[in-house]
């Protein structure tokens, strides 16, 4: 079942074409990797999907909705949440509060209920604390709920960002270099975590430079170069694709 489709999306920054007519489809339940050399436009694609930057041309459709012109918080509510390449937690707030920020968009109580401390607001608060703790437990950070997010180890911060993204109850999570800065053991644990995310019927899209990791967790890999899709297929197909090898290793000079 088609979940996300990108149709000829384009973005230029000044004279630089960051994404040039990129098209792709993501089906429900897949784990899709987006790879490519530095500067290929991978993160820009993610930013275009999540609405952090505006499309110049093309369309993004997500489970029946056009995402064009929607602000990021609306897109989160529709069911796409993300993590950032450079971790973007709320570092001075607690681990729990960071996850609660993800719960926000699924909560109901507004200003009136809050200022008068109404019973339904208190009930919701209790429920959401439980949900947040479940998410922390899911990524293995439950015991650290009361620490300052900024004080966590790097790998833990990455996992906390994933917990925060999952707290928005997404249909699709977009992970921008989730294994970045992780050691081998942490990366291995991340592989398991992504398997578990898939088991929750959440589709995963990720950018990653760790090829062993990508080949291990992804069902399908998209390869970008200079803002365009150059190859697409299973990890095995991609590894053999001459265009991919060329993009990564360059062309041998012929005499």
């Amino acid at each position: 079942m088609l979940l996300l489709s990108l149709n000829n999306i384009t973005k230029t920054f000044g004279g630089l074409v960051a994404v040039a007519g990129f098209s792709a489809r993501v089906n429900r339940g897949e784990v899709v990797g987006l790879i490519g050399p530095n500067g290929a436009g991978k993160t820009t694609v993610f930013n275009l999907i999540t609405g952090s930057i505006k499309l110049d041309a093309g369309f993004v459709f997500f489970s029946g909705h056009s995402l064009s012109g929607l602000r990021p918080h609306r897109i989160v509510k529709l069911g796409i949440s993300r993590t950032f390449q450079s971790i973007r937690l709320f570092p001075h707030m607690s681990v729990l509060e960071n996850v609660l920020s993800g719960c926000h968009c699924r909560m109901q109580s507004g200003l009136f209920a809050a200022i008068f401390h109404l019973p339904r607001q208190r009930r919701e608060e209790k429920m959401v604390l439980n949900n947040a703790m479940n998410e922390l437990d899911f990524v293995g950070l439950a015991s650290k709920w009361n620490l300052k997010a900024g004080s966590l180890a790097y790998g833990d911060q990455r996992r906390l960002e994933i917990a925060r993204a999952l707290a928005t109850e997404p249909k699709l999570v977009i992970l921008d270099e989730p294994a970045g800065g992780m050691n081998d053991k942490e990366t291995e644990a991340l592989t398991g975590l992504i398997e578990n995310i898939r088991k929750r019927d959440v589709t995963v899209m990720l950018i990653e430079h760790d090829m062993r990791f990508v080949m291990h967790v992804c069902d399908r890999v998209l390869v970008m170069e200079n803002g365009a899709l150059i190859a697409e297929g299973t990890p095995e197909e991609i590894q053999k694709d001459p265009k991919v090898i060329e993009a990564y290793l360059g062309v041998g000079e012929e005499d």
């Binding site: 990021p72 989160v76 920020s101 968009c105 925060r164 928005t168």
Partner: peptide
């Protein structure tokens, strides 16, 4: 930016 990106209007 992070607040908007995580679903807060």
């Amino acid at each position: 930016v992070a607040a908007e990106g995580i679903g807060i209007n």
